[in-house]
Design a protein around this nucleic acid. Structure first.
Lengths: 204, 204
DNA sequence: GTCTATATATCGATAGAC
DNA sequence: GTCTATCGATATATAGAC
């Protein structure tokens, strides 16, 4: 009979990731110490260095994963679009994946939206490039809709910022136990974005 | 003849405020040291304590001033409204003062939007109360417009967050030397907010 | 109101025993 | 892979000379 797997008390790298993500996102990178992270997984600070080379290495690991998941969510959403999708379809699809990510992964969202400055220069550059790549997807859909006369807006760049930003803010206030489901939330934001870009004349 | 006023090399409290605001807003409170602040006004860290009792006292001084100016901007904008103003008028007025503040005072905006957690508990509570007071003004205008059937939105609370947040983001990217004037910017955001709340049916 | 010097605490990171 | 012990740097803040 093989020995029963012992109840592992040791801190795995993933446990460290969870604890560090939570604290980096909520308290900020420079307000979080290695002792804080170690304490919340039940080990001493020195033991963290068996899993990560430095504090910044933890942040970079978390940042890279967060961006990969954000971009993968976008890719999956786009892949599910029918071939004859309209700019409205693509806008709705992007806003949905954007808002859903920021609602479901608030710690990852807070990390990529407010802790990039703590990265090393080289990692910071890569992170900014990933963020730009993500933002460009939204911008291209809006530009295309404007070019086709389907969307109307005074300044497409500002509208892109506005739509992305109102979704990012979701990570700061949305609570799954609140009155809204993530699906509700996505519907609301899709409607808001669609109205912002609507070509219909307003009554005033 | 009275003696000519000597060229004061001494660091005044206001010079310290300017330097600390810049660094707290850009690098974050906990990433900024008293030596950093002192160095940028040409004195040693110990001399800062002749002007402020602690590092947190500087942050609170800056936070209080920023909220006072934000709320004063709102009050002035409301005071200039005609007696027979519509909810659309009031929305436009609030969005304009909101966006203008975040464009013109980006450091103050970044401070109140992302550095409150560094305050002491008692100061933090007061800051959150001031922020809630500010947000309530926007919410009340939107609620009133919805009640009168002038605005239409699935969720007034979410729409309020969205409108406030897209304006707050301005402090992160707007540059006065860029292609847009502050007036342009306010017009764009007033239009976006108005369309978000527009009661007209959409074509789809 | 500035400075130097220092107190005290905590930081990230390393060395080496187990 | 964990620990204790510790290094060197840096943090906020204070004391006291000028």
């Amino acid at each position: 009979m093989p020995p029963a797997p012992e109840a592992a008390i040791s801190a795995t790298a993933d446990e460290i990731r969870v604890a560090a993500l939570e604290q980096f996102a909520r308290a900020g990178y420079s307000s979080t110490s290695m002792r804080d992270i170690a304490g919340s997984v039940g080990i001493k600070a020195a033991s963290l260095y068996n899993h990560f080379g430095s504090k910044e290495a933890i942040l970079w690991d978390l940042t890279l994963t967060a961006f990969e998941e954000l971009l993968r969510g976008r890719d999956l959403a786009i892949a599910n679009l029918p071939n004859n999708s309209t700019p409205q379809d693509r806008l709705a699809c992007l806003v949905t994946s954007h808002v859903a990510f920021h609602a479901k992964n608030s710690n990852q969202a807070l990390l990529v939206n407010s802790q990039l400055a703590a990265l090393s220069k080289s990692h910071y550059r890569k992170a900014v490039a990933m963020r730009a790549q993500y933002e460009d997807t939204m911008r291209e859909v809006i530009d295309e809709g404007v070019a086709k006369g389907i969307f109307d807006t005074t300044d497409a760049r500002v509208a892109t910022f506005a739509i992305l930003q109102m979704g990012m803010a979701v990570s700061g206030w949305f609570r799954p136990e609140g009155p809204l489901t993530v699906t509700d939330l996505c519907t609301i934001y899709v409607d808001l974005a669609a109205k912002m870009l609507a070509p219909l004349p307003l009554s005033h």
